[in-house]
Every structure is written in structure tokens, then in C-alpha cells.
């Protein structure tokens, strides 16, 4: 009933996907159905290799739905569109662009006003804490810093929805905690609808408004959890640990 109060923005209607190739069919996604409301932080949480990346690609319009449909504000997603921003696990930064070049890439290719773009980029460079690195190339940055650029790049294009595909998957534990805090911080300042994929339970509970637990391949929705702990959350508070136990058990039951 609460959906009446807030605006619904993205809906995933009964989506399925099977890959055909090498003489066999691999069913990756089976009847996934969920809605996301505006400025909600949704975490898609499931075991590794369960088809989460495929789901993100379909949400982004980079992969077709086989059955069902995905729509953004009642408009069907048929291809890549700039009001959906993606943050990749591999960062997918353009190595030949500087930090600024990467962050300004979206507005630039969409022929946005140059001065405006520069100001936006400055704002986000500051927000993700990369001041002083504007003219560095990605190869000179650490993994965490690269992902900061990735996040800033997605934000700078001003998307309605941000899709994040295990953005911190390649980082070491220490950096990961730092990045989770940073992301939370950014999100608090620049509210946006986020769909975040991960296989890390702590990360999921730390960031999510709602966790959608997926089963192993073919992925389907096992259970949903609303996380209503106050932010910023404490990794070792009893409530946090309790949730962690509940969700872990639910997940173990799926494997």
C-alpha cells in the first residue's frame, strides 16, 4: 500500500531469459517480477554466476528480454538509453580518456552545453573525492579510485536509474568497506534510484532499502527483505548481525 505514496519508476514484468548456443540452451532467468520506486536503493543479492549480470544487462537494454518486459516509467526499454546509468564491475573506464574525460563523456557525446558539463563534472569529481586527479589516466589510479570515476561518470550523465553490477567485486576487503561508505555518502547527497547487484551479504545489508534474494541459476526471486535500519549502518550492531543471519539462512536454503 505504501507504493501509493511514492512514485513507481521501474518495473520488471515476468522476465525470463535463456541463452542458446553451442548446441544447448542455458536458462539463466526465470519469471522475475519486481518494481522499484523512485530513489529506492534495491540490492539484487544472490549466489555467484546466478545470472545477475544478465539481469542488469537486460535492465540496461543491452540484452533483450526473451519473455516479459522491463519498463521505465511505463515506457518499454528496448535499447541502451542515457537515462539508465551503469557502473561496471570491471569499471569499463575508457583508458584513453583522463578522469575528467571519462566523467564528461556522457554529456559530451550528447552535445550538452560545455560550461554546464564542466561544472557538473567538477561537482561530481569533488563528491567522489578525486580532486587533484582530474588529468590522470585510469592506468595511474588504484582500483578503488577507478571505481569512484565509474560512479561519477554514471552520475554525471544524470540518469533516472543507476544500475551497479558488483561494482566493488574486484576490490580488496579494506577498500571495499571504504567504497561502500563512500557510495552511501554520495547516494545520501544525490538521491537516485539504484539497482545494485552483489554477492556480498554485508554489502547488501549496509546499502539496501530492500534486498531481493535470487535463487541459483536459473535465477528467480526467492524472497524480499525490507531493510529499515537507520543509516549510516553499523556492520556489527546486533540488528545488523541478526538480519545477516536471517538472510544467510534464506540463501543457504536456495543453494
Amino acid at each position: 500500500m505504501e507504493h501509493n505514496a511514492v512514485k513507481q519508476i521501474l518495473s520488471c514484468r515476468d522476465v525470463s531469459k535463456t541463452f542458446y548456443g553451442d548446441g544447448k540452451c542455458t536458462e539463466v532467468i526465470r519469471h522475475i517480477d519486481f518494481d522499484v520506486t523512485e530513489n529506492e536503493f534495491v540490492v539484487l543479492f544472490g549466489p555467484g554466476q546466478c545470472g545477475k549480470t544478465t539481469l542488469i544487462k537486460m535492465l540496461a537494454g543491452l540484452e533483450e528480454c526473451e519473455e516479459g518486459s522491463i519498463s521505465l516509467e511505463n515506457e518499454k526499454i528496448t535499447g541502451p538509453r542515457p537515462d539508465l546509468g551503469v557502473v561496471y564491475q570491471t569499471t569499463a573506464l575508457f583508458p584513453w580518456c583522463t578522469v575528467r574525460g571519462n566523467i564528461e563523456f556522457g554529456p559530451k557525446v550528447r552535445n550538452k552545453d560545455k560550461k554546464e558539463t564542466r561544472k557538473r563534472a567538477d561537482h561530481f569529481i569533488d563528491l567522489v573525492g578525486l580532486k587533484g586527479f582530474e588529468d590522470s589516466y585510469p592506468k595511474a589510479l588504484s582500483g578503488g579510485m577507478r571505481q569512484r570515476v565509474g560512479i561519477a561518470r554514471a552520475y554525471c550523465n544524470d540518469p533516472r536509474v543507476l544500475l551497479m553490477d558488483e561494482p566493488f567485486g574486484h576490490l580488496d576487503a579494506q577498500t571495499r568497506y571504504m567504497m561502500e561508505e563512500a557510495l552511501e555518502n554520495i547516494w545520501q547527497k544525490e538521491k537516485r534510484t539504484v539497482i545494485f547487484v552483489t554477492n556480498n551479504i554485508e554489502e547488501a545489508i549496509y546499502l539496501a532499502d530492500r534486498i531481493i534474494l535470487l535463487t541459483n541459476r536459473p535465477a528467480s526471486i526467492k524472497q524480499e527483505f525490507k531493510i529499515e535500519l537507520p543509516r549510516p549502518r553499523d556492520y556489527v550492531s546486533p540488528e545488523f548481525l541478526k538480519l545477516r543471519e536471517i538472510i544467510t539462512q534464506a540463501m543457504d536454503a536456495t543453494v
Partner: peptide
């Protein structure tokens, strides 16, 4: 890299 092409298309190229 296909991912880079995808990323550029997502950003509106």
C-alpha cells in the same frame, strides 16, 4: 572491448 562499446552506448553515444 565489447564492454567499453556498451558503456559508451549507455552514456548516449
Amino acid at each position: 572491448d565489447e564492454t567499453l562499446i556498451g558503456a559508451a552506448r549507455m552514456l548516449g553515444a
